[in-house]
Design a protein around this nucleic acid. Structure first.
Lengths: 208, 208
DNA sequence: GTCTATATGACGATAGAC
DNA sequence: GTCTATCGTCATATAGAC
């Protein structure tokens, strides 16, 4: 009885950092950069607040690493989807890219079904005028653009439509209009106008 | 010398409220709901912090009224654009709606050229899960949808494209990718892919 | 209609023990 | 690797004078 049990197990810092970043994605997503507190992130990760600060230096640094990780996961999901689309294609020359477009769209929906992931991305994009966070967000956006252009081989028009639809999905999801479609007639009609029944269903699940 | 000059002129409360809401649009836009402080709003409006609270009750109420005002201005701008488009049309039956689409798009760009207006709207849409702010934001979005459907007479496909393009413009503007196009090659190509030179120019001005 | 003063409660970050 | 204790700062909201 001469020593108390520590509240958290002693685990490697790398693993701990990953736990914290996952927790931070949820917390920053729901509360935004300013609204989130290091204490809430710490509690979501099951550790003490000073330890979060110890591992990341500052709250700003924690947000940057959270945003970077989310952007990296987005890119990785897109690349995996691309590989799948190409593996599924018939042996002959590549199709017109419609399979890729569809598969990328599905991959995006799966990712942003997690509200924390969706909102962390959006908060990042909205902080374009922050001198340190802005460049990180823009760089992520441009990486996606280059991937669509160079790796997916999208035409300019495909890129335009893909990005624009993605941003509309974000807004429908974040605002809760997707979820409201279950109760509200106009919201349901809006979902019909914009995306088919399939997507609407995913949006509904994700908004919940 | 028995009394000091008040720091602010004594003006009617209605006028004061409008000044404060205009200032709040800038401050909430740049710092977000949580990041903004009633003190910064007060200073932007040239009055004391307690007086802002006195007039609006709470910070939350101030944000709600700021968001409502911004949404109302958006609707008003759209209705004015619609009236213009119809006034400009030749006497015969209405065109296929392309003039309306173009005029509405211009009206939107003019509005979101003000960064505070743009970001206040986006912050609202991102707070869909807030029990009191969420419904206000969704209601605004649905009002826009109904206007497009009932007053502009858009087809479902027109509605889809108009909204999706709008959301992409928002993101390009908020993240600063539009402005970065002046320096960054890929950013410039992205702007080319998505919107023509005309829109890109406006986005550039607006990002500045 | 507007201010000053202030109570009260976070939050971020540091110090230092184990 | 992780904690407890705590300092300094800042924000919302109230009280009350003018």
């Amino acid at each position: 009885m001469s020593s108390m049990t520590p509240r958290s197990e002693r685990i490697p810092a790398d693993e701990r950092r990953e736990q914290i970043l996952a927790a931070a994605t949820t917390v920053f997503g729901e509360l935004g950069y300013a609204g989130a507190t290091t204490d809430r992130v710490a509690r979501a990760a099951g550790i003490s607040q000073p330890y979060v600060v110890r591992l990341f230096g500052t709250k700003e640094q924690l947000f940057i690493e959270t945003l970077r990780r989310t952007l990296a996961r987005l890119l990785a999901a897109f690349r995996a989807a691309l590989a799948e689309a190409d593996a599924g294609a018939d042996a002959g020359g590549d199709g017109d890219g419609e399979a890729r477009e569809a598969r990328l769209g599905e991959a995006y929906l799966e990712l942003v079904e997690d509200r924390g992931t969706l909102l962390t991305l959006l908060h990042g994009f909205m902080m374009g005028s922050d001198p340190v966070i802005g460049p990180v967000a823009r760089d992520g956006f441009l990486q996606v653009f280059r991937m669509l252009r160079d790796e997916a081989g999208f035409t300019p028009d495909q890129i335009h439509r893909f990005l624009a639809d993605g941003m509309l999905i974000n807004t429908l999801l974040a605002s809760g209009v997707g979820l409201a479609a279950k109760r509200d007639r106009d919201a349901a009609e809006l979902m019909d106008c914009t995306f088919g029944a399939h997507v609407a269903e995913v949006l509904e699940r994700a908004s919940a």
